[in-house]
Design a protein around this nucleic acid. Structure first.
Lengths: 340, 340
DNA sequence: CCGTCCGATTGAAATGATTCAAACAGCGAC
DNA sequence: GTCGCTGTTTGAATCATTTCAATCGGACGG
């Protein structure tokens, strides 16, 4: 029942604790025969190292913190998975935290992670400048921003170009002959919404259409299916029915789509719809949804890679601000569906 | 830049390190005035405790390990979220690991978690008896099985009754007048599939229908939408078209549904379909899917609660084997959809 | 044969919070 | 004035590993 420690291994193998430690950490410096003897002893006793002691001495653990808004959101789930995969092959382990868009929860997590002596933190911060986050970097913990472009050049970040994404969606609709786009979006305070909107305006400008006539906006309080339904009701009842709708995310789009179909509107013949995110249900929606896909897994992957590079090679590490490009996935809400 | 430790706080507050530690861990034993002085010093120096030291001394950290097959699967995502929420309010933190159904990855994770001196491990084991898992319990780490009923009474487990779930689905279809059910399922080696199948047979038996005529089975290699499509193709082409289909999970059901609709089959008028899991896209599928819902978040929640109870009150903790009951969610694939 | 050098091994210091027995201060009772 | 009690505070031992300077043993060159 008693924990077997490095000392027990040393005794059994007839060497000093220092040697056992060497076998564990720099096997190349210990003679092959002793190494074997030690490894045998480790196996016999079922020894597993106590990383707490190592962490205490080194001042940092092989743990990464990942703080996202909510893992339940597939966007973050994929990021988490990407980060975890990279961590795993590099011998790191990931502590996952949900901030639920609360500064308090976020701050609390950052404190706990600092207590844990994590090597680094991957985070989608709730707000751009967090005291706790700065403090964390001050004590030498690396931080990589996820889904947020870094302000300065003093840290790494991995984000997706939301302006380009909005532009992609708008250009697609404009290219199909529309000259007015109805943008169903969340509050402008949400950066993603604002950026995607900016993309739409850019596309309109490029097409020579003034925003005043080309952009109709419909702001909903939350970015979920229920809000989408509500928006759909209003749009159906409105006197001037839209022909081209771009929703700031797929959940909104699915909600809108349902209401329109139920009201007898034909999609895409009467109304075209473009979503954003390419969540799994986008493909299996009532009418497969045209949407903008973001390289989510890639983001988590890249973020963790940058982090680990920074941790392991701090001297020759240049901070990078990665900006991924989204892609348009054309399905049946913007073109005739295949004959049934 | 240098780490501020408990010593620095003690010096600034003019007390001993022991007192500072007391302020942190048992504030009630230290006089109010000294406590304030110490708290002030902590604030001024921005001190955060180094939990590695505590872990080293205590032999366990306030960290839980959570090992699931794949967080990307919404089933596990919800479990993770449930567990995380409970951990968070109890001052614990969760290390998340994906085993990808690989014994090696699982075993590797368990070793790393043991190295981290985790207080406990929540796990959906790939196989029922893992050496590493037993070893973990041998060294005194509590283990709670998730989505697996414990074999003995020597550990906690939280699972859902898959037999009941299968039965629920089958009874629903039988109650709608069918006397033959086509069960689209993964390999029988997957316990969930086998259990759900057993539920179907139980329902048939209860209805007095021999399994030989009442149960048609269709085994697919993987439990995803693509497999569902493949199954759908076969079913459509088959000479005797099924009238009632029960799919072992929603992804299969969505795949089958798409193919049927594309082939001009009317759902639910010609064919009824029941899925399993109630994934988010079930509701927004081409035709909202009737399915069996599992209390996933609840499972994670309960698992973490059991774990923490066991960790904090090991003396009066009785191991529990929780079996949650699934519920049937009736939507439009088994009854006439509302008029459009 | 002695000195030197090199690779292998050792032993002990260091890491930072916790905890517990012991010291201490203050106060009331006798 | 002393004893004892209570409520605070202290200081040192403890946890397991890492790391580095020191040591050891052997080989090789002079």
């Amino acid at each position: 029942m008693r924990r077997v420690g490095i000392k027990d291994v040393a005794r059994l193998a007839g060497v000093s604790v220092g040697t056992v430690s060497h076998v564990l950490n720099r096997p190349e410096v210990v003679a092959a025969t002793t190494r074997q003897r030690v490894e045998q002893a480790i196996g016999e006793l079922g020894f597993v190292r106590n990383s707490a002691a190592g962490t205490l001495r080194a001042g940092r653990s092989k743990v990464l913190g990942l703080v996202v808004m909510d893992v339940t959101n597939p966007f973050y789930t994929d990021i988490a998975r990407g980060a975890e995969d990279v961590a795993q092959v590099n011998g790191y382990v990931v502590i996952l935290g949900n901030s639920d868009e609360s500064d308090d929860k976020e701050s609390n997590y950052l404190r706990v992670l600092q207590e844990q002596q994590v090597a680094g933190v991957l985070i989608t911060p709730v707000h751009d400048d967090s005291t706790r986050l700065r403090q964390l970097r001050d004590v030498g913990t690396s931080v990589v921003l996820v889904d947020r472009p870094a302000q300065g050049v003093d840290q790494c970040s991995v984000a997706v170009d939301n302006v380009a994404g909005g532009r992609l969606a708008a250009e697609h609709l404009l290219g199909l002959g529309h000259d007015e786009i109805t943008f169903v979006t969340g509050p402008a305070a949400i950066r993603q919404c604002a950026d995607r909107r900016a993309g739409v305006k850019a596309a309109l400008r490029a097409a020579g259409i003034p925003a005043a006539t080309g952009l109709r906006e419909f702001v909903v309080p939350a970015m979920n299916t229920a809000s989408g339904r509500a928006a759909g009701e209003k749009l159906v009842q409105g006197k001037r029915r839209p022909r081209a709708i771009f929703c700031a995310n797929d959940l909104l789009a699915v909600g809108v789509l349902h209401v329109l179909l139920r009201a007898g509107v034909r999609v895409p013949e009467d109304v075209m719809i473009v979503g954003y995110d390419d969540i799994t249900s986008a493909e299996s929606a009532a009418i497969p949804l045209t949407t903008v896909r973001q390289p989510t897994y890639q983001m988590g992957h890249m973020a963790a890679e940058l982090m680990i590079a920074e941790c392991e090679q701090p001297q020759h590490h240049a901070h990078q601000q990665i900006l991924f490009q989204p892609t348009l996935v054309v399905r049946s809400t913007t073109k005739a569906s295949p004959p049934r």
